[in-house]
Design a protein around this nucleic acid. Sequence first.
DNA 1: ACAAAAGTGTTTGTTGTACACCCATGC
DNA 2: GCATGGGTGTACAACAAACACTTTTGT
Lengths: 230, 230
Amino acid sequence: MMSFAYDYPRPSVTADCIIFGLANRQLNVLLIERKSEPFKGCWAFPGGFVAENEPLQAAAKRELAEETGLENIFLEQLYTFGNPGRDPRGHTITVAYFGLVALNEYQPHAASDAVRAQWFAVNALPPLVFDHEQIFAVALSRLKSKVRYQPIGFELLPKKFTLTQLQQLYETILEKPLDKRNFRKKIDRLNLLVDLKERQTEVPHRAARLFSFDEKRYLTLKEEGFNFEI
Amino acid sequence: MMSFAYDYPRPSVTADCIIFGLANRQLNVLLIERKSEPFKGCWAFPGGFVAENEPLQAAAKRELAEETGLENIFLEQLYTFGNPGRDPRGHTITVAYFGLVALNEYQPHAASDAVRAQWFAVNALPPLVFDHEQIFAVALSRLKSKVRYQPIGFELLPKKFTLTQLQQLYETILEKPLDKRNFRKKIDRLNLLVDLKERQTEVPHRAARLFSFDEKRYLTLKEEGFNFEI
DNA sequence: ACAAAAGTGTTTGTTGTACACCCATGC
DNA sequence: GCATGGGTGTACAACAAACACTTTTGT
């Protein structure tokens, strides 16, 4: 095996996580405050160096857990950033991962290389280190276009949710109001929801019906894609 | 700056190119025969190590040009593969790029690390090295889904082409026959083509009208996306 | 005259879009 | 009884899908 070895100068490789969450009607993203140089004290996406012989997604998950405490998050690869100059320490390639969580259920707590871990509304982000603002732009635009051809929401909503909550999710991501009746017709045609035959409790108005996603159908639609020109 | 330096063990990074081309009614992909170990003499996608301080896409373009002679190809990032064990030399991360060319206009010639460079029909590929078969599967599925929400063909067809050629392109990629009239109506509605007011010459039957893409409209549609449930 | 591919419309079903009111519940 | 959000239908326009014949040209 050693006969195949080589020793080119190597860029270093990190895996970073862009985690979106929904709170009220606000799209949020998870940031950490860096504990160490460079850019100590600045805000960044959770992430860090890929260890030798560590799968990329595993590195992303590990760093996320270490720095924010979030675990069992589904991560999807977003894009790989490798422009020289993006990291003052030298040529660094960052494989960015993208995840969605039901924000209420995940209160992050800082750990490891992070001083703090905190949700920020996407339209009120602090300045970010490196080229993380560019990475964020790619992530947000991916989220917006994903919504158009894949089911989304499973990860962003509580297990049981109302149609209005689902609609607000789409309105938040797409940044435009949707017609209630048309939205419901469209969702209905997808055969994606299970009517739980339950209702909200303790709301100061008529209680809405609760639904959950049909996981199997959700996965099918995710693979097949659909058209949601809503 | 040196105070920020670090010295983790680093995986190495390569950039590989999956280039599709269309010949007759066959989708083809460009492979090289490796000149050096490991897997000397086996077929692989063109690609190689990313140099220090080299942008990723630049590395992909450089390797493609070095190994096959193809230049000025538009490359789009496909996916990054980083599973340990995929390369016997040690942990290697491959950023895969994806490109389309009008096959007739690009006859590859081997150079550099390649013994040969050659087009292969996608349904008759030789065994590939490393995890290149998996990479190929991702590339092909990306091509198939891309077709549904972005214009395609600009890069795969000659500058002047007939509607039938365009339809055959879609039929080849989607692997299903399409209705001529419906296809033409749909293309027409996209406002994507420029009627060149020219006709084919030297065909042994009625000459078809020639079209070209409206580049501006093509780019707009690429950004906006569309729905081509054809 | 015939072979080969170009070119062209209509009908029917489905989906998109715009739009406004009554219903149930908690206070 | 009123405030709050829940829930529902219809009409019109656009698009999808199925389908067959005439036209042009070279040989």
